[in-house]
Write a protein that binds this DNA or RNA. Structure first.
Lengths: 112, 112
DNA sequence: CCAATAGATCGACGATTGTCAATGCTTTGA
DNA sequence: TCAAAGCATTGACAATCGTCGATCTATTGG
């Protein structure tokens, strides 16, 4: 390794400065968005409740999480926007499930 | 559903208040801490650079990430505190590597 | 010993986030 | 048709976070 730092040009004013190896900035942003959805204890417990029950209604999430209804609604929205869960409204209730395409991933994410 | 929240006592000094299924609050907090470390695009690119090179010095991280030196230092600290990377100081430089115990995990986390 | 360099820490700033009370919308049951 | 229930949205607030300039510490080379 160089005893003198390689001094790649600081920023060439234009495009992504040749990160060379590693994640692209786009991939990094997308990944970070997913991990941000998992970066909250309440959301992790929420997700694990959904994963454990297979399907659960929002009204049955408020009590175990010990959070207000708007707060639970907020967290389900974040997880849904990250594509980790999907909810379908049947009558008065919204039933949440792990997004099918992400089922395996979610299982791994909850027990790493 | 109870219209009144069950009023679990915030913490009963003892055990996890019957979440029933799912993650314990302790496990959730620990997991969330790890995912929080991954919830930033710059840290993900930083981690992928370390993973790609096997070992890299801080001075070689500033340019590819296009962030100031204090910012890079901050991010390496966050990743290290999450146990994802370890750095050893050799002379004037700190060399960063993926934490050996987490190598497999990190590989999966970067290519999910 | 001194000047230079790698890196950490501090202080400050704007931006984002988690939370709840209040309110609005929609669907059901009577 | 009406009251109630499930859920979303809004607005506000404190707390946390990402970033950088300035500064401090430690190590090297001369």
């Amino acid at each position: 390794m160089a005893t003198t730092p390689p001094e790649l040009d600081p920023v060439d004013g234009c495009c992504a400065p040749a990160t060379g190896a590693g994640l692209s900035e786009l991939d990094a942003a997308a990944l970070a968005h997913t991990y941000a959805a998992l970066a909250d204890p309440v959301r992790l417990r929420l997700l694990s409740l959904i994963a454990a029950t297979g399907e659960i209604c929002s009204c049955d999430l408020v009590a175990p999480l010990a959070k207000s209804q708007p707060t639970v609604s907020h967290h389900t929205k974040v997880l849904a926007e990250a594509g980790l869960i999907t909810g379908d409204k049947r009558g008065r209730w919204v039933h949440w499930r792990v997004a099918p395409a992400r089922a395996d991933l979610v299982r791994d994410l909850l027990a790493p």
